[in-house]
Design a protein around this nucleic acid. Structure first.
Lengths: 197, 197, 197, 197
DNA sequence: TATGAATGAGCTTTCATTCAT
DNA sequence: TATGAATGAAAGCTCATTCAT
């Protein structure tokens, strides 16, 4: 009996995660009650606590998903055999597109990280740092080979770019004048232009 | 006897505002209880509600202060008679220094805005937009006169830069390798380099 | 094991309602704290809010119960085939007995109605008006058929009687010289005597 | 310098009492805050506490005023040399008119009495009883002389009438179909008719 | 696998009153 | 006479979590 009525086709855990993600993004983690999540997901509190140990676990799942996807995509771009300029441009644009595709995740990511318990917080930050370092490695590679200017420390360059990515959830609107691909190309272009020797 | 006995000489409202700012930045607005604020400020709850109508009013005061300062500083830079390149560079670096000088305010600004009631939220966003537009006008002026490249819409350029400013509270540490002035110069430089024709 | 361990065998919601009714009658709605209700009922605040949406909901429940009972009893008397004089006397005496049987409810009814939110207040008043109109119809029937004097508008007659019913909770004491049935007979008698042509 | 601007001509204590009376009647004693009273009266809290020892004192003043007036008026009617029938009818009608003239006082009187401290409550009740007894004496005088029926104990008769007086604030509207004098005559008439032998 | 009653600590806010000036 | 800052207790309500079934 494969049901599709009322979103009940999706398994309970996924449904909970999707609902929680949306609500966390819309209202913030603290403003979203467990009661609200289960009501909107059409299940009961007992069910939620059957699948997730706590409200915080839901939040961490969101992070885990985001981190996994971003790491994989960056690895793909960084590992291609193309010239460094193309690899950096590709990665820089891709993280914009992916972020726009998951604006909710992004909003949560940058706004609610401090709601995690210290240990989980530390773990997420360390994974995030790994991602950041791999990105920085691309910049440094270009600087060493003289393709990029070395006027600015690579660290700062990366933070400059990720600042703008972080900022997307604040201003990007799907019905705005630019498609996500256009935004991505523009932002990647700004990065590359700033790095011209 | 010009000072009250308990702890500080600073007047109660200021003391409350300073304490609240620090706590909001450290723990987030929702995670900070009124009880905690008054305890750390060394007053009672009644005193807080004597001066501020609600917890939210404290948050709004933080915003009002930040917006006022930033608007004034930008006006000073934009209105100087210098060449457009210098005016934009000056303003871009100054907002970085000012932000670092008030990292707590900045952290609150970008993380807690959505905790304001809809009407106050709207008001802050509209003041913020005015600031953004004045900044954009500088970029457009340079683009029109050919000093800056027109490859990227001015809007996007401004969001790119403010993304990095916004991001500062995430990574900047006073005891890091770079002084705030060095960071400011680097970030302004990245902006100007990206705008080279 | 058909009973819970703590104190009473009665289900929690009923226990809460009974306790609240008694306290509201004794001290008034505003003077009765939720804390006091749950303590006297032997449950926790969380339990109360599990069953009732708010303190006001408890009050409305009291009203709903009273209105239902009174309406039913009046219908029974009004619908009997007896002469109008007997029907009015029966109803007039019965409302006195019922009121004395539930003096707490009555005290709350007339003293705390204005504590309800406007919409609930309106709803209770409209149900109350229906009851009042059915009673008035009895008086009018007797006036039309000449059994009762028409010197006084039926409306006023009804208010005159219900004023005394309302007043019962102020002076009636179970250990006083008159039984509730005697009081009821006397008050009904006064009404009928006043209506003699 | 006799001011009349802005209601400031009236002395502060009177202004406070009038404002408090209105607010107590409209919202109930507990729902009316001292802050609200002083704001609406155009003075400060310090001023209120200069003239009145506490919020409760304001309430007691309302009672004192009502009791004094009613007692005086009843004495006047009872002491006239007229036939008992006319004296009772006069007093019964007069209490209705006076009550309608001060509906706010009446509403407070019957609704907020239990907000007084036990000792003040007791004092008010005892004064109220004196009033009640003087009224009852009129009924008994008529019963002894055979002008009124003795079918109903005089006590009950008095409660019957005062129940309707008490009830006035619930239903009487100045813009209704009957003038206060008409209502008073009708209610006195009902009482006298019920007492016909 | 799921329910939902119940907990208990914590939240923001209100308020009558006091007191130095 | 009057001010208004400050107090401190108590109010109504929310919520993540547990647990017997």
């Amino acid at each position: 009996m494969a049901r599709t009525t009322d979103g009940e086709g999706t398994p309970v855990p996924q449904r909970l995660l999707a609902t929680a993600t949306r609500l966390f993004a819309e209202q913030g983690y603290d403003r979203t009650s467990v009661q609200e999540i289960v009501e909107k997901a059409g299940v009961t509190k007992g069910a939620l606590y059957h699948y997730f140990g706590s409200k915080e676990d839901l939040l961490q799942e969101v992070y885990a998903r985001v981190l996994r996807v971003q790491q994989e995509r960056l690895d793909a771009f960084a590992g291609s055999g193309e010239p460094i300029e193309d690899r950096l441009r590709g990665a820089a644009a891709d993280v914009v597109v992916t972020t726009i595709d998951n604006l909710d995740d992004a909003a949560i990511f940058f706004r609610s990280m401090h709601h995690l318990s210290p240990e989980k917080h530390k773990q997420v930050r360390s994974e995030r740092r790994r991602y950041h370092e791999r990105f920085r490695a691309l910049v440094e590679e270009g600087q060493r080979s003289g393709v990029f200017s070395s006027a600015t420390p690579a660290d700062l360059v990366v933070d400059y770019h990720f600042g703008s990515v972080h900022h997307l959830s604040t201003w990007y609107r799907p019905d705005g004048p630019l498609t996500k691909q256009q935004v991505a190309d523009h932002l990647a272009d700004l990065l590359l232009r700033a790095l011209r020797p």
